Amino acid sequence: MRKALIWLPFVAFVGVLAVVAIGLFRPADRDVRSALVGHELPEFALPAMVEGVPGVDKARFTQGTPRLLNVFASWCIPCIAESPQLMRLKAMGVPIEGVAVRDTPENTGIFLRRYGNPFVGVGDDRDGRLQLAIGSSGVPESYVIDGKGRIVLQHIGDIRAEDVETIAAAVRGAR
Score class of each variant (00 low, 15 high):
residue 70 N to Q: 02
residue 63 Q to L: 05
residue 43 E to W: 02
residue 82 E to R: 01
residue 35 A to T: 13
residue 34 S to I: 03
residue 40 E to F: 09
residue 21 A to V: 15
residue 72 F to P: 07
residue 38 G to V: 09
residue 50 V to C: 00
residue 54 P to W: 10
residue 10 F to Y: 05
residue 28 A to L: 10
residue 83 S to Q: 11
residue 54 P to A: 15
residue 33 R to L: 07
residue 35 A to S: 09
residue 33 R to A: 09
residue 69 L to V: 08
residue 44 F to D: 07
residue 25 F to P: 02
residue 20 V to L: 06
residue 30 R to D: 12
residue 72 F to L: 13
residue 53 V to E: 02
residue 43 E to H: 05
residue 66 P to V: 00
residue 87 M to E: 15
residue 5 L to R: 07
residue 85 Q to V: 05
residue 41 L to V: 11
residue 79 C to R: 03
residue 27 P to C: 07
residue 59 A to Q: 06
residue 41 L to R: 13
residue 65 T to G: 04
residue 35 A to G: 03
residue 71 V to F: 08
residue 42 P to V: 00
residue 74 S to A: 12
residue 30 R to T: 15
residue 76 C to T: 01
residue 88 R to D: 14
residue 82 E to T: 03
residue 79 C to M: 07
residue 82 E to V: 04
residue 65 T to I: 09
residue 77 I to N: 09
residue 17 L to D: 03
residue 54 P to V: 12
residue 47 P to F: 13
residue 25 F to H: 10
residue 6 I to F: 11
residue 72 F to K: 05
residue 17 L to M: 11
residue 56 V to F: 01
residue 83 S to T: 09
residue 77 I to F: 05
residue 87 M to W: 15
residue 45 A to D: 14
residue 14 V to N: 05
residue 62 T to S: 05
residue 62 T to A: 14
residue 57 D to Y: 13
residue 14 V to M: 13
residue 14 V to K: 06
residue 9 P to A: 06
residue 53 V to T: 05
residue 56 V to W: 02
residue 84 P to M: 07
residue 15 G to D: 04
residue 60 R to N: 04
residue 36 L to E: 00
residue 28 A to N: 06
residue 62 T to N: 05
residue 75 W to S: 03
residue 51 E to I: 15
residue 40 E to D: 14
residue 71 V to E: 01
residue 84 P to N: 05
residue 65 T to V: 09
residue 69 L to G: 14
residue 52 G to Q: 10
residue 60 R to E: 12
residue 10 F to H: 12
residue 67 R to A: 14
residue 21 A to G: 15
residue 14 V to I: 11
residue 40 E to L: 07
residue 50 V to E: 08
residue 9 P to G: 10
residue 51 E to L: 12
residue 21 A to N: 10
residue 22 I to R: 12
residue 8 L to S: 08
residue 53 V to F: 10
residue 65 T to R: 11
residue 82 E to W: 09
residue 22 I to L: 15
residue 9 P to Y: 08
residue 61 F to I: 09
residue 50 V to A: 06
residue 60 R to G: 07
residue 36 L to W: 01
residue 31 D to G: 13
residue 41 L to T: 09
residue 22 I to P: 02
residue 38 G to R: 05
residue 25 F to D: 07
residue 49 M to T: 00
residue 11 V to H: 00
residue 87 M to I: 13
residue 30 R to L: 15
residue 43 E to D: 09
residue 69 L to I: 03
residue 25 F to R: 11
residue 48 A to R: 13
residue 46 L to M: 03
residue 55 G to M: 00
residue 34 S to G: 12
residue 11 V to R: 06
residue 61 F to D: 11
